[in-house]
Design a protein around this nucleic acid. Sequence first.
DNA 1: CGTAGCCTTGACCGCCCTCAAATTATGTGG
DNA 2: CCACATAATTTGAGGGCGGTCAAGGCTACG
Lengths: 280, 280
Amino acid sequence: MVSDSHPLFSALCRRFESRLALSQQEAHAVRSLTAVPRRLLPPGSSLDVEPRRCELLLSGLACRYTTSRSGRRQIIAYLVPGDFCSSDICDPKVLGYQIGTLSAVMIASLPREGLTQIGARFPRLSATLQDFTVAEAATTTQWLLNLGQRDALERTSHLLCELFIRLNCVGLTSANGCELPLKQTDLADALVMSPVHMSRTLMKLRRLRLAHLLHKWLTLYDFEELKTVAGFTPTYLGIRELPRAMPAIPVSAPTLPPREDTGARPLLASGAGGGSGRPC
Amino acid sequence: MVSDSHPLFSALCRRFESRLALSQQEAHAVRSLTAVPRRLLPPGSSLDVEPRRCELLLSGLACRYTTSRSGRRQIIAYLVPGDFCSSDICDPKVLGYQIGTLSAVMIASLPREGLTQIGARFPRLSATLQDFTVAEAATTTQWLLNLGQRDALERTSHLLCELFIRLNCVGLTSANGCELPLKQTDLADALVMSPVHMSRTLMKLRRLRLAHLLHKWLTLYDFEELKTVAGFTPTYLGIRELPRAMPAIPVSAPTLPPREDTGARPLLASGAGGGSGRPC
DNA sequence: CGTAGCCTTGACCGCCCTCAAATTATGTGG
DNA sequence: CCACATAATTTGAGGGCGGTCAAGGCTACG
């Protein structure tokens, strides 16, 4: 196993740093907090939470979900590295949902006392942990709005924007893309649409030269336009937007699919042209 | 103005008592906390929150809502007496929504320090206040599920069940009904459907002899069946179910609309005309 | 008694679901 | 490296829930 300070497993540190600059002591405290035994889970496994522990996701993607009477799965929240699978605010025992992995994941099980102790020693960390919880609730509210007032294309765009920024916060993106080990079914169950329509919608995003999800890699051809389509304002995530350097790497022509302006959306007709360097 | 211990304004006390039995000192502390100047707002007014204060709803109904790009209002949460319009977890400034009144409301503006002090003196109250926040987040999650996996009839049933139980917690229900000063538009904006379809759905509930909303009064003809239709499990509200005595008063025949199993028959549904038996 | 807002009802239409089949990835053993 | 099996994605056709538009009825209130 790699060392505890390996970038692959410092997701929590990086998440803190997306909101404030950690002092050396603070960073050390967080790192030592996560220096606990880890376990690796395969995709599609379920994660049950022990009472006095906080399960921290270090790598991979997971989700909170419920299964409805009709047997359909609805994903309530995605969990990305640096997220806590369980916390006070979201006790699966009480709220009646489950936690499942969507890819291979690495998980650290922290004792809850460790978190309270670190909070007592470092008030700034305590406040930020609280902010994490607030952002979590705010994200649920945004999903509610997403379901309520956006159609399939806008919903999908919104979710991709959110995931890209959250992954960016923990340093898991390139300039205009990121690894996203999700099946179309996983997206469909979060956006509450059928897999068939999910496929059609991703196809449309691709043809509009906005985004492309292929082979578990998400490419955002035009992030600004995607945000416009989605009506995405990242305020609710509680972070400064795109804190990490995003060099403007223009999308090379060969990687672009053939242009196609499906006339259905006059809103998008002009913006995507050129694929020129988009400053981030 | 009535005295501070008047039942009309002891909503917060009653809400605490739906979760635990208050000692005399605790009850006194809560009552003195809410013994502050109040203001009465007309329906349709907006409520802006001052930074270091907690606005407590004492009577009437309010909501949190946003306005989408298309100008449509979406209600994110209903606020019933005993609810805090603003708290740490839901700072409108950050989250970008507004608070509006749906009926005439009475509001008390508590200093935030008062809440923290009372929490320090009475750990049980502090824990319960925390539980309120958790229940709030859980309710948002339930609304997400409501939108995602239920059709119009089920969604509406679910919302009516929730509102009835929450109002019951603060002693604002009769045996099988409660005052509910909501327009159909207000329900439609929460359930994300058009006012036209809201009308049709309420009509269907009425014909199915499940529930009847008329003249700002909600009658539940068959609460158990309504819960079944909605797939409603009140666990997420974090309360013991129906703590207050609910004497089984059978609905008298004249108040029932003509029976109709499904919407198959466009039978004239004027049967509820005599608003006679309004049990209070 | 008249006006304005709210509710109801009907007609038509579009987004998205379901079913079904073809096509393409992914993984496994030879 | 190829053949095969399985899963995932794509594409088409048809239908239903619920949206929009429009008109009429009911309530409330001055």
